[in-house]
Each structure stands twice: as structure tokens, then as C-alpha cells.
Design a protein around this nucleic acid. Structure first.
Lengths: 343, 343
DNA sequence: CTGTTAGCGCATTCAG
DNA sequence: CTGAATGCGCTAACAG
């Protein structure tokens, strides 16, 4: 009647005993590697014993000994933001293939949380990190880097005097937003507006900068039509759009910093009795799944987050494998203008 | 010109040396706990030295020694499914408060992957697991449980003869779907349809069962109006709805197994030149953010995934703390019918 | 080809 | 109140 008593998990020593060999032999056959060759008969016996006892490697012990944890960390602001699940999924798939686990951290884009996370990451002894830093700078990654933990950053980094070996992957938001505004939002010399998040988010500032440049080129007054809702969410978009609608003159086109905000803006516009795109052209950014399902379907910019995640993970593993050495790489990934009915 | 040479990370021994004390003392002050009291002056000195060297605890070593990894695992089918990010986020927030990291696994609801994941979880030596099993049964969790790793399952489990100590948390899909169909989809003795996933997903079968029961009660023919698209995604919903539309007679109401499928169905209905809800009443399940933003806004069932995640995490930590002992608990969480314009 | 040995960083006896 | 010694499970020399 042993019942639910906690059973100590089997170790290599247990397997060795069961197979009548030494623990070293067990380690060798389990790792396959090593320069030692093992007799086939012995190997079979060990494997059988391991399987029999339900042996599973103790990651902590292995990690302590080898310095490799077989875990990679991902830092994102908020998994609830529809852009990131696909990004995470892309990473996860690659990591999975390589036998790596994924430790996930949400930072909310807040610096204190980002810093705490960085320490957790060190504590966990992960082998590599993929980060979407919002407030962090390159310098903050220095400790990790110095300890030999490769880091891949998603987004454009503020260059600093010393550039550590740090890979980054990014999409040219500035160019994409510029195209979008010029070709889809602009309707001659009419006011166009933008709804954006609170603006402390480096990664997305390219979007706002592109909008500003457009205004300058057209000689349009700046700031007048820029509404910064608090959160980069649907609620934020709704609030910001209502603010825009309350001002005069009414914008004839609106660019939202992301699709969620655009969706919120859409609701606000509809509630105001105006139509998209007839009264106001509206476009977003990200091409989240539902952008296509909105009514009208949303014109936006696709960034292929899953592919971004996969590529980021590949870059990380190239560092872990030692396939790629030396200077940090900056990889630009393509975007695509998705023209639908809203603009 | 040391540059980017890999620096060994500081250990407690290094801190001890810097502070002029023994490693034992460092361990004591860093853990705060212990029955040993340390002189204030010494404590200060140690803390200063640790901070100075940028000391961060080595989780692997601690884990090996104490058996606790300060990590919990979450098993979900697919983070890309909009229900799960909020679920994960709820867990993450609680875990964060407790100083625990979250190791995330996507299983795609496929048994082989689920099993592989279970082994990874053992290898990682996580302290606890929150799982959304699709094909796994209680027995599969036995090894983990026997090793003293608490497990909280989201969803209803098939009871087996032996019920190990395993907590579960679930929403009564069967009741919720029943209400939805009876009060919102039904329009007298007219055909009503359902679009659902491929059906090997235990957790969601309550939705289909409720639909079936309704047909039986009304004496309506079964199967005729049930279309099972492959994936429980927007694409699956679209395909399944087109299939339904191709049959005769046309359904006057359609229940989708989840919101993503409902959104896809909406597109198919619109493309067929029919209107929701005038021609066809449509309802989904989950109340993902975009359900409200659809046109027309989607009638659905809210399950509050973030709250579910938080509660699941709390249950897990009650086990980890030893606050709750003994029998596995089954906690039912509330749902809410969200009536909007689509049905 | 297989066994012995040492030590990764830490928490925890047990002595001083 | 502090220090020295031990071992968690594993891998990697090194011997045999």
C-alpha cells in the first residue's frame, strides 16, 4: 500500500546498479557522445534499465556540471498583445527541434520589470535570450553577454559607443509606416491623424516618426492630429480616436500605431456615425489575424511574427552552436503592405 | 583590453572572499532564512560585496541542492489560439509575485508531443505543472505526481479507477453551450447548425454534446447540420460554414465551438450574401477580445481566461506551500453568457 | 572498453 | 555568531 508516497526519482546510479555497470557507463550511453565507445550489449542493457526505471535526466545536475541548461529565455512585453503569441510560437518551434525549453517572461515594457527579468534570466542560467526590449538599452545586456550568454534583440537598438556582440532583428517600421501613410491614408491636402500608444516604446517610435515626417513634407501642422492613448490596446485606440473626433477639423484619414488600436478606433468612428473608408480612411499595423475579419477589413502592414520568431531563434542557435562568431549582426526582415477595404 | 572575453560569473565563494567571511555566511544572509542569526555589520558587508560583484544566484546549483527549481511549467495546446495568452498571463502574474519563472510548452494537443513535453518537464525539474491536456489522461501524470510535483489540470478529466492527488479547474462548457443554444440560437423549430473542430479535443466536447442534446430534445435530426472543420481556427470555421451553406436546408442559427471559428463563419455567411443575425443567428464561445469588435458584435460565452490562470496558479502554489494537502480538488469556475448583436 | 575520482555552486549539518 | 566539511546528480579526465 505504498500509495501516493513521494518516490525519489531514479538517478544514473540507480540505473547503473540495475544494469550492473558503473555510473560513468550510464552517462556515456545516455549522452551518446563522448569519445568512449560502449559495447552494444552493454548499451542495450543500460537503455533497458533506464527505460524500466523511468529514468529522466536531472537537468539541474547536468546544468551545474556542463554549464548548459537547455533552456532559452524569451522576454516580451505582454503575451496578451496579439503580435507576440505568433512570435513566441515561432521561437518555440525552433527551440523544440533543438531540444531546448522556453522560459517566458512578460515585462509589460516597464523598465523595473525588465531589469528584474534580466536577473531572473541569469539565475535560471539559460543558455540564450531573445528579447523585445522596450526601455532597456544595450548596456543592460552587458552582464549576460560577458558571461557568454548570446542575446538576440527584436527591434532597433539605440547604438551606443560600445557595441557588444549582440544580434538584432527588426522590421523597418519607419519605411513601412511611410508607405502606408503616403499611399493609403493621404487624400490630398486634408488633415490626417494618428492614434498611438504612450510613446515610451522605442520599438514603435518609427511609426510615429514616419507620420511626423509626412506632415512636415506636406507642410501640415504637427501634433494637432496626433492622439496618444494610454495603452497600445483596443481600449487605447478607442479613447484616442474619440479624442481626435472631438477636435476640429475632422481627420480624413487615420493611421493607428497597431491593429488593436485601429480596431478600437473603428468602433469609435462607427459610433460617431461616420463610415470607413468613405468618411475616414483607416489603417493599422501588424496584420493580426482579426484585421482581415474586421468590417471593413483593415488595411495594414504585415510583419510575419512567426517567421520573425523563427529567424530570431535560428540566429540564437547559430551563436549557441558556434556556427557564427564575431560581430553582432543586424538583420532586417521584410514587411508587406496589406491593402484591404479600410484605406 | 579585456573586451568581450567571457567572464566567469561570481559565486558565493567570490562574494565571501570580497567580504572577508566564509561562504556559509554568504549563503545565510542571501537566503535570509536559516536558524542562524548574522551580525548586522556582517550582513551589510556581504550584501554590499554581492551587489558590487553583480552576484546572481546560480539556480542550477540551488536546485540540485534543495530540489526546488523555482520554475513552474505550463502546458497548453497553442499559444496562438487567442484563449491561451490570457490564461498564461494570469499564471505568469501569480508566479511572478512568488518569484517563480514560467516554462512554457506548446503541445498542439497532439499526444506524442504532450508526452515528450511531460519528459521535458521532468528533466527541467520544475516544481509544479499547470496543464491543459488534450489527449493525456490522469495516468500520464502519475510519474510527476509520485515524484511530488503538484499538477493542476485545466479541463474536465476522464475519471479513472485510481484518482491521484491532482487538482483540476474547469468551466461547465456543457451547461454554457446548452444555454447559448437554447436562448440565442434556437428560433423555433428551424434547423440550427454547428461548426466545430475535429473533435479529438476532450476539453471542448461538452460544447458539441450540448448541441446534440438540444437536437434530441427538439426531435431534430442529428449530424445533418454539424460540420467539423479541421482546425479550431478562423480558417476551419470558414470552411465548415461553407460546407453548411452548401447543404439544404439553410440553417437559421449556427453555434460555433469557439470565437475564432465563429469569426470565420461570419465571413463565409457574409460572402454568401446573407446577413447576421437577420438570416442566420451566430454565436461563438470564449469571448476573445475581438468578439466584441466584430460586425455585428458576437454573442458568446465568456470564460475569463486570465482569472482561470490566476486561480489555477493559486491552487498550484497552495500545494507547493503545503497550505492545502490531501485529496485532489475540482474547482468549477463561472462562465457568463455575453449577449450581443449576432444572436 | 569500463571503473575511479574530482568538482560544478550551493545549503546544511556540526564544531568551534 | 561564524567556519570547515559534506553531498545533491552529473560529466570529464584519467587509469586500468
Amino acid at each position: 500500500m505504498a500509495g501516493s508516497s513521494t518516490r525519489r526519482r531514479p538517478t544514473q546510479a540507480d540505473v547503473a546498479r540495475a544494469a550492473g555497470v558503473s555510473q560513468t557507463v550510464v552517462s556515456s550511453v545516455l549522452n551518446g557522445s563522448s569519445h568512449v565507445s560502449i559495447a552494444d550489449a552493454t548499451r542495450e542493457r543500460v537503455l533497458a534499465a533506464a527505460d524500466d526505471l523511468g529514468y529522466v535526466m536531472d537537468g539541474a545536475a547536468r546544468s551545474l556540471r556542463t554549464g548548459k541548461s537547455l533552456q532559452v529565455a524569451i522576454l516580451i512585453p505582454d503575451i496578451t498583445n496579439p503580435f507576440y503569441p505568433a512570435f513566441e510560437r515561432g521561437i518555440q518551434d525552433i527551440a523544440d527541434d533543438r531540444g531546448y525549453d522556453l522560459v517566458a517572461y512578460n515585462t509589460d515594457g516597464l523598465r523595473p520589470k525588465e531589469l528584474r527579468t534580466l536577473r531572473s534570466v541569469q539565475r535560471a542560467r539559460v543558455d540564450g535570450v531573445i528579447a523585445t526590449p522596450f526601455q532597456l538599452t544595450v548596456a543592460d545586456f552587458a552582464p549576460l553577454l560577458h558571461q557568454g550568454v548570446p542575446v538576440v534583440v527584436f527591434g532597433e537598438l539605440t547604438r551606443e559607443h560600445v557595441t557588444p556582440v549582440l544580434d538584432s532583428i527588426y522590421v523597418d517600421d519607419y519605411a513601412a509606416a511611410g508607405e502606408l501613410v503616403a499611399y493609403r491614408i493621404d487624400r490630398g491636402y486634408r488633415p490626417i491623424g494618428m492614434v498611438a500608444g504612450s510613446g515610451d516604446v522605442l520599438r514603435r517610435e518609427g511609426r510615429v516618426r514616419a507620420y511626423r515626417r509626412f506632415l512636415i513634407e506636406r507642410g501640415l501642422p504637427q501634433e494637432a492630429m496626433l492622439a496618444r492613448g494610454g495603452d497600445p490596446t483596443e481600449a487605447g485606440g478607442y479613447a484616442a480616436m474619440r479624442e481626435l473626433l472631438a477636435r476640429a477639423p475632422l481627420p480624413r484619414g487615420v493611421f493607428a500605431a497597431n491593429d488593436m488600436m485601429a480596431l478600437g478606433a473603428l468602433v469609435a468612428i462607427r459610433e460617431a456615425g461616420l463610415r470607413v473608408p468613405d468618411d475616414i480612411a483607416l489603417a493599422g499595423f501588424d496584420d493580426i489575424t482579426v484585421a482581415r475579419l474586421a468590417n471593413p477589413p483593415l488595411t495594414t502592414v504585415a510583419q510575419f511574427p512567426e517567421r520573425l520568431g523563427r529567424r530570431a531563434a535560428e540566429m540564437l542557435f547559430e551563436r549557441l552552436d558556434g556556427t557564427v562568431l564575431g560581430e553582432g549582426r543586424r538583420v532586417e526582415m521584410p514587411y508587406e503592405l496589406i491593402v484591404r477595404a479600410s484605406a
